[in-house]
Write a protein that binds this DNA or RNA. Structure first.
Lengths: 220, 220
DNA sequence: CTCATAATCTAACGATTATTAGAATATGTC
DNA sequence: GACATATTCTAATAATCGTTAGATTATGAG
């Protein structure tokens, strides 16, 4: 076999990963899976597609070895096949945010203030949370919190905030995060909290971004 | 516009990047472009395709804003639109190497010993090169060396080694690198040097891998 | 201005992919 | 064993993509 044919085989393999991440729905599935293991059912509902279609997309992701499946009773639970996969998602999204003007414009229209964190801000946020100077809340569904969350963060799912709002201190800054820059849960949480007189702000990071920045997650 | 439609727009943008990296030839073009600016002509020859086809692939990459074009006299020179693009290539290839058994098998068949570097080895290699304990040679074409190379590395293009071999010290370890783990130039250089009695070995890193690891490049 | 060269554009095709619906499989429950 | 549920498989169609060849554009040289 000559050099050209050999090379072709190598790039073809990498392109399997590329093909897997070339569909919007598959990317969204990866992002949701970065929040923890989920059933086909739950994934389909989360990304708004038919279960059959979700199953087909998951098959593609599985053939590219980006996800793994595990039977759990009547259900089949999918999960990312490694931390590097969620880092790849963050990498793709970051390149898109950096280079695609259309995406930048859309982000600005949707999210008033995009609060991107740098290494320093992440460290100091974790410090302040540790000392209790700020309260960091994870507004994702509680199962996602359970499978990994920012250090010193409390679980406060978006649809429980109204009832549980009194658990939060009125005299401290509250920092909300959710699944990442594309997720709208933290923005809704901030609006809700501000309406009740709390000092609240959101950050763009989710657990995938946090981890991709080389920082550790916590599990309860 | 509802939440679902809004989200769809966001993931669709990221999928533009995904689609751009879903073709083997486009990935190879990105890898070659990570070595520096090149004309369509040169790129087509390098990856073994027709100029028309190369032009079409480059158009796709340009529309995804992964590359930029610049007219240079009669030629048009393409380059990556940022360091993050070459880091994305490294990221994709690393995920593939990590998860795809087929790729691992192919790599083992082609390259006897895959010498992957970790952070520590990279630092110590640079130290030894600085002190002159080892001679690091860049066996890529000299134009690629010129547009950025490993610190303390000397240019010694593969097809000049035979004539210039006496420039290399016979009593020192020689470390060869080229475009990255998929590139065969460093392996050929090592074979050539060993035939002439030199102590030579190769490393998997190219400049893209070096830079993606957070280390600086040098430019002459 | 004409010519040669480098690259792009256009049109066409065959191959691949996304999506949908219906049939089939696997598991747990009654 | 029969049934309900979760998921996958199969088949079909429309849409997209890769590749090729021929026509076109842009530049520099004579």
């Amino acid at each position: 076999m000559n050099k050209r044919q050999t090379k072709d085989l190598l790039y073809e393999q990498v392109a399997r990963i590329g093909k897997a991440v070339s569909s919007p729905k598959r990317l969204e599935l990866l992002e949701v899976l970065a929040q923890g293991e989920k059933t086909v059912d739950a994934l389909a509902a989360e990304v708004g597609i038919d279960i059959k279609l979700a199953s087909a997309h998951l098959k593609v992701l599985k053939e590219a070895r980006l996800v793994e499946a595990r039977r759990e009773g009547r259900f089949i639970a999918y999960r990312l096949s490694g931390e590097d996969v969620s880092a790849l998602w963050v990498n793709l999204r970051t390149v898109a945010e950096e280079h695609l003007v259309e995406l930048k414009v859309q982000m600005e229209r949707i999210f008033a203030a995009p609060e991107k964190l740098d290494a320093e801000t992440r460290q100091s946020l974790m410090e302040k949370a540790r000392r209790g100077d700020v309260v960091v809340i994870d507004v994702r569904p509680s199962t996602e919190y359970t499978s990994g969350h920012l250090p010193f963060a409390r679980s406060m799912p978006l649809d429980e905030i109204r009832q549980r709002i009194k658990e939060l201190p009125a005299d401290k800054d509250i920092v909300a995060y959710c699944r990442g820059p594309f997720c709208m849960m933290s923005a809704e949480a901030v609006t809700l909290l501000q309406e009740h007189g709390y000092r609240a702000q959101k950050i763009a990071d989710g657990t995938a971004e946090w981890q991709a920045a080389g920082l550790p997650l916590a599990t309860p």
